[in-house]
Design a binder for these strands. Structure first.
Lengths: 156, 156
DNA sequence: CCGTGATAGTCAAGCTTCGTGACTAATTTG
DNA sequence: CAAATTAGTCACGAAGCTTGACTATCACGG
C-alpha cells in the first residue's frame, strides 16, 4: 500500500502528521513496557491529575462522551493503570486515580513526545520551530471558532 | 460537552485542528447540495482524476486498503458521485469515473478548503501563513520517517 | 423537612470505519 | 503453455463512537 502522494489539502496533511506522531508514540511506549495502551486511552491518561480526577471532569477536558470515558477507565483498571476510588465529597462520584504503573506510562509518554519535539527543533532551528508551534496553536484556536465567521467570507 | 483545556501535546493539537477543518468542510458541503458525503469518501474523491482512476491506484494514493476503497466506491456509486467503467486496457480492472455531480463536489470541496486557508492567511499575514504551511509540510515529511531516527535520540 | 430538578456514573443497542484473509478472473512472465 | 502476479470482491471481526434510558445521590426552593 505504498505510494502516497503529496497531501492534497491541509486537513489530510495534518491528519498524516497526527498519525505519524501517534505511531511513534505508541510503538515506543510498547517497547518501554506499555504494549497495551492505545490512542483512545489518552483521553483519560493525558488529562489525569496525580491525586485523581472524576470521570465527568475527564469527559469535559477530553471532549469525549461520559460513556466513552467509562469504558476507557474499565480497560485501564483491567490493565492496572488506574483504580476507581470513592470520592469523599460526593457519594455518587468516583475518582480515577493513577497507579504507579499509570504514572510510569504518563511520564514516559511525555518524554517520548518531548523527544519528538526536540528532534523537530533540531531539524528546524529553535526559533523557527517555536514559531511554528505557536502558529499551530493559534490557527487551531481560530479554526475551532469557524462558525462565527460564517457570513464573513462571501461564497464563490 | 464543553470545557476543553489547552491541548496537552502536539498530537492532540493537530488532531483538534484536523477535526475542526473537517467539520467546516463537511457542514458547508452539506449546505451546498452534498449532505451525504462523509470524510472517508475523501479517500476516493480527493484523489480522482477527471478521466477516471483505478481502485488500486486510489488505494496507493490514499494509503487505504483496497477493501476500503471498494466499499467507498460502492457508496459513491449509490450516491451518483462516480460510476464504474470497464478499463479498456485491462479486463480485470475498472475505472472509477466522476459524474457531473461528483465533479461538482470536488470543485466545491476545493473552494471551501481554499476559503479556509484564505481566512487563515488574512488572520496571519500572507508570509507568516505561507511559512507556517511550508513548515507543516516539512515537519510531516520528517515525522513520517521517524523509524530512521531510532537510535539517534539517546533515551534518558 | 421535603419534593423537584440537576448531576455522576452505568447499561444496552446500533452504526461507522477499518483490518485481515481468502477467493475469482485476467494478465504477465519465463 | 504453466506459474506467478495483479485487480477487484466477499466474508468476518474488532475498534471506536453515538444515543437514549436508567439508578443513585446531591442541591435548591418552598
Amino acid at each position: 500500500m505504498g505510494d502516497d502522494r503529496p497531501e492534497p489539502d491541509v486537513g489530510m496533511l495534518t491528519g498524516t502528521f497526527m498519525r505519524a506522531v501517534q505511531d511513534e508514540l505508541f510503538e515506543t511506549l510498547a517497547e518501554q513496557g506499555h504494549p497495551d495502551v492505545r490512542p483512545r486511552h489518552g483521553s483519560v491518561l493525558a488529562f489525569l491529575d496525580r491525586d485523581g480526577t472524576r470521570a465527568t471532569e475527564l469527559s469535559q477536558r477530553s471532549g469525549q462522551h461520559k460513556q466513552i470515558i467509562g469504558t476507557i477507565v474499565d480497560e485501564l483498571v483491567q490493565l492496572a493503570y488506574v483504580t476507581r476510588e470513592p470520592d469523599p465529597r460526593d457519594r455518587r462520584a468516583k475518582l480515577v486515580v493513577p497507579t504507579a504503573h499509570g504514572l510510569d506510562e504518563i511520564s514516559r509518554a511525555r518524554a517520548i513526545l518531548a523527544a519528538i519535539e526536540r528532534r523537530h527543533e533540531q531539524a528546524f532551528g529553535a526559533e523557527e520551530y517555536t514559531s511554528f508551534k505557536a502558529a499551530l496553536q493559534r490557527i487551531t484556536r481560530l479554526q475551532r471558532q469557524w462558525r462565527d465567521h460564517r457570513g464573513t467570507q462571501p461564497r464563490e
